[in-house]
Simulated assay, not measured.
Amino acid sequence: MIANEQIKASEVRLTGLDGEDLGVMTRDEALALAKKHKVDLVCESLMSSPPPCRLIGRGAAKQDMNARKQAEKRKDGPLKAKEIRLTPHIEEHDYETKLRQLEKLLDGGLAVDLTVRAQGKESQQAKALLERLLADLKGRGSRETGIQTSGKGAAVRVVPARRP
């Protein structure tokens, strides 16, 4: 963030405190205006000539910048995942409880790794249980990976439909 005397351009395109366009003026005039109103002169971009600058309350520019960085980091960062384990012989009440838990996690923006532990010939039942869960979670999330079956069960990763 470039502010006040750090701005080296001779002319700047200035935006006022309420978002009004004050036009192109010299850097010294803009700094004088900022001091008069007891605010900071902040440069928004160095990619254009003259660079766009705005008047913003003291300290507010830094808070605004930190908020933008955090939002960017949240958007670009890896999706956190929780693991939910099930068995192929789950009762209906337990299934509904797990389904509500999954909906809360997906609505909160977390990915979910669903794992069904199976023994022997139960792998088809495990896969059928995961397909049922995916069908019930249709609007809240979608699968990131296909259902992977192995000798000990089946697994799938479900990501939220929309990231916060």
Rank of each mutant, 00 (worst) to 15 (best):
V116H: 03
G16R: 03
P78D: 10
R85F: 03
Q101L: 13
D21S: 06
V42P: 03
R68M: 12
Q125D: 12
D40W: 01
K36E: 12
H89I: 03
V12N: 09
L106V: 11
R117F: 10
L41H: 01
K75S: 14
D113G: 05
Q63N: 12
V42W: 08
Q119N: 08
M47V: 04
R27C: 01
K36M: 02
R85V: 14
E83F: 02
D21W: 05
K121F: 07
R100Q: 14
D28R: 14
E20P: 00
P50I: 02
K62C: 00
D40Y: 01
Y95M: 08
Q70Y: 09
K36N: 04
K38T: 01
L22S: 00
M65L: 10
T97M: 08
S48Y: 08
G77T: 09
E44H: 07
E29D: 14
L110K: 14
K35F: 01
A111V: 02
L41E: 00
K80R: 13
E91V: 13
C43V: 06
K69G: 04
Y95Q: 13
T87K: 13
M25F: 00
A81C: 12
E72P: 00
P78V: 11
A126I: 13
I84R: 08
A67T: 15
G57E: 11
A81Y: 14
Q125E: 15
T15P: 02
L46Y: 07
K69W: 02
E96G: 09
P50K: 07
R27D: 02
T87M: 07
R117D: 13
R27V: 04
A118S: 13
D94I: 09
E72A: 15
L17I: 08
Q124T: 09
L106E: 09
L86T: 03
K35M: 07
A81K: 15
G120Q: 10
Q63S: 12
R58N: 04
D21N: 08
V12F: 05
K104T: 15
G23I: 04
A34S: 10
Q101P: 00
R85H: 11
D76H: 14
T97F: 05
